[in-house]
Amino acid sequence: MRLAELSRRSGVSTATIKYYLREGLLPAGRQVNTTTAEYDEEHLRRLRLVRAMIQVGRLPVATVREVLGHVDDDSLGRTIRLGAALWALPQVPEPDEDDEYVQAAHREVGELLQALGWTNAKALTTISPAYRSLVVGVAAFRRLGYDWGAELLAPYARLMHQAAVLDLDFVETHPSEAEKAETAVLGAILNEPVLRALHRLAQEEESARRYGFE
């Protein structure tokens, strides 16, 4: 397809597509002549991903470029490729390791991972942004006087593991490694708000069942 058709099918203006091409967010098309290039379904898929990252995820172009660099890195195994792409997304600030609540949260999260048997997750604790986010969250609860320890967190963690199984089952329906990584990134940007909304709707439903509307 030519640039005009790519624009029409994606809903992205030709000027924006040219900008993405200049910034390296979109692979160059196949040159037909000095002024014309052709694009394919891969360009359309990548364009939709870039648009979601910038418009929905509010990511700066530099971050999008970094994420896509990991997505396209054929030298990485699947786990590292997915992890590197997701870790390049914006994360919570680093926890203050001198804070007593953070130190307690580290212990609680360590006990949680041990109880769940998540040995792979435990091995990544020094580098995983998700681990740091969990520590920050648990520390915040403890600072406010709520003892959200391993025992209370474990049922939630098991539910999240079921969600992760569904996530990766869906990722594996895509043929290429790049598409799998793209789908994981898109899920992190689009699926997490959906899951958060479902959680809140479920809370509303359960509250109404238990207490009614009075």
Rank of each mutant, 00 (worst) to 15 (best):
V56K: 01
M53Q: 05
L76I: 06
A62H: 08
S75P: 06
L76R: 01
V61Q: 01
Q91N: 14
R58I: 01
R81G: 12
P93S: 03
L86F: 04
W87V: 06
T63N: 11
E97I: 11
Q55T: 13
G69F: 00
P90Q: 10
V61P: 01
G83E: 14
L86R: 07
V71C: 12
P93Y: 00
V92E: 14
V50C: 08
M53R: 02
G83H: 05
E97R: 15
W87H: 13
P93G: 02
E66W: 00
G57R: 03
R58L: 10
V56M: 07
P90L: 08
V67I: 10
L59A: 03
V64Y: 02
P60V: 10
R78H: 09
D96H: 06
V71W: 02
V56A: 13
L59K: 03
P93H: 00
I80T: 15
A62F: 00
S75M: 05
E97N: 04
E94T: 14
R58A: 14
E66H: 10
L86I: 11
L86M: 11
G57E: 03
D74A: 15
I80R: 13
D98L: 14
L89E: 09
R48P: 09
I54D: 04
R65P: 09
V61G: 04
A85Y: 01
R81S: 09
A52W: 02
V61E: 05
E94F: 08
V56R: 04
I80V: 15
D74R: 11
M53I: 04
V71Y: 04
L89H: 06
G77S: 09
P93Q: 02
L82T: 12
Q91T: 15
L86S: 09
V92N: 05
R81N: 07
L68W: 01
D96C: 11
A85W: 00
T79L: 12
L59R: 02
V92M: 11
E94H: 12
V92S: 12
L82E: 12
D74S: 15
T79W: 00
S75A: 15
H70K: 03
L89Y: 06
E66V: 13
R78Q: 13
R51Q: 15
D96K: 07
D72N: 14
L89N: 08
V50Y: 03
T63V: 15
L68P: 06
A52Y: 00
T63E: 12
V67A: 04
S75F: 03
P95C: 09
V50S: 07
V71P: 10
V56G: 05
H70S: 14
D96M: 10
D74L: 13
R81W: 04
T79R: 10
R81M: 08
A88W: 03
R48H: 12
L82D: 12
A85D: 09
D98W: 05
D72G: 13
L76V: 07
A88I: 04
I80N: 10
I80G: 08
I54E: 07
D96N: 15
E94I: 14
A84C: 12
P90V: 13
M53P: 08
V71D: 11
Q55P: 00
A85P: 08
L76Q: 14
G69A: 03
R81K: 09
P95K: 01
V50H: 00
G57I: 01
S75W: 02
A85L: 07
W87N: 14
A52T: 13
A84P: 08
A62C: 07
A52D: 12
V71F: 05
G77K: 05
Q91W: 05
